[in-house]
C-alpha cells in the first residue's frame, strides 16, 4: 500500500487577478488531475471574464515537469491565446529545463520569463508602489 499523499483533498492552486492579468502559483508537486484542473480553471475564467490580456504561470516551485505536465501547460497557454491573452511561464528551474529539452520538449509556443517583474513588464502591467507619503 502506498503511503498517503499529503496533498490529497487540498484545493487546486488558486487563480489570482492582477490588473488585467491572471496569475497562478503552481505548487511543488503536480499530479495529473491537478494540472488538468488548472487548465480547466483557466479556460473557465477566461470564458467568463472579458479583458484579461495576460496569464502568468509561476513554476518556480515546480521541481519536476514531465511530458504530460508539459503538454497540459502548453495546452493551457494555447487556450489563453485563443481568448486573446498572452501566457508567460515564469521561474522554471534549471534542472527542470535541462530535463525538458532532453525529453525533446522546448515549449516553443509559450513565452517565458526569468522572474515575475519581467513577466509583468512584458505584459505591460504596472504595479504602482506607494511610499508612506502617498507618492507613487
Amino acid at each position: 500500500m502506498n503511503p498517503p499523499h499529503p496533498r490529497d483533498g487540498a484545493p487546486p492552486a488558486p487563480l489570482m487577478k492582477l490588473g488585467h492579468c491572471l496569475f497562478v502559483l503552481v505548487p511543488g508537486a503536480l499530479r495529473d488531475t491537478a494540472v488538468r484542473d488548472l487548465h480547466d480553471a483557466v479556460a473557465a475564467r477566461l470564458a467568463k471574464e472579458d479583458g484579461i490580456r495576460g496569464l502568468i504561470i509561476d513554476v518556480s516551485a515546480l521541481g519536476l515537469v514531465d511530458s504530460y505536465t508539459a503538454r497540459v501547460l502548453e495546452q493551457t497557454a494555447h487556450v489563453a491565446r485563443s481568448f486573446g491573452a498572452r501566457a508567460v511561464l515564469v521561474g522554471l528551474q534549471p534542472e527542470v529545463a535541462t530535463t525538458l529539452v532532453e525529453l525533446g520538449i522546448d515549449l516553443g509556443s509559450v513565452e517565458t520569463a526569468l522572474n515575475l517583474e519581467r513577466a509583468l513588464a512584458r505584459l505591460k502591467l504596472r504595479i504602482v508602489s506607494e511610499d508612506p507619503d502617498g507618492r507613487p
Binding site: L89, L92, V101, R118
Partner: peptide, 12 residues
C-alpha cells in the same frame, strides 16, 4: 541547440 532552448525556457 538544446542548451539554447533550455536558456530560453528559463526566460532569457
Amino acid at each position: 541547440i538544446r542548451m539554447a532552448k533550455a536558456v530560453r525556457l528559463l526566460g532569457a
